[in-house]
Amino acid sequence: MIEIPHSSRRSVLTGGVTTLSAAGLVALLGGSLPAEARQSNRPGQDVQLLNAALALEHEGIAAYQIAAESGLLSADILKVGIAFQSHHKTHRDDLATAIRRLGGQAAASKSTAEYAAALGVSALKTQNDVLKLALGLERGAANAYLGLIPSLEATEFHLLSARIAGDEAFHAAILGNVLNEPIPQTAPIFG
């Protein structure tokens, strides 16, 4: 069961859910710069890749925000969207923490209007349209994080990427179920 905080929809969606990130990632990474990153001949490579992943999370957060404010979602679907958006905020914070630990600067979010244009949201007319967009983004994100793993130099970030991929795959499965998509008959489903 998904619990929704006792505040307005807008404040819930814009407030940010950041509690897990710093403590969680430091624990995950052991609180120091990963050995592979220290020894790498290309110390900025992981920063570049993690920042691209961060940009993906910024876009996902914006997409759920736009969906929530569209007026197209039922109350139950809105609850699911709020929960998924909070997961993406945690991903965002974990990635930003990792980037800063590597000495990099975390990429900033663009404006909501820029995301809306890039995602073509003006074409969304129904709840199903919104859900199909979300499913495409989540499914793509699961694959993107899995495909990113071999390019990351520090093994600690392999784990981070895999964990986020799992979350995205979970989101995609839920959204596919809501849309009555058939269960894939062949595996692997992602990656």
Binding site: Q45, Q48, L49, N51, A52, A144, G147, L148, S151, L152
Partner: peptide
């Protein structure tokens, strides 16, 4: 090397 694209 140095690209932001890591997906393989």
């Amino acid at each position: 090397p140095g690209t932001a694209m890591g997906f393989r």
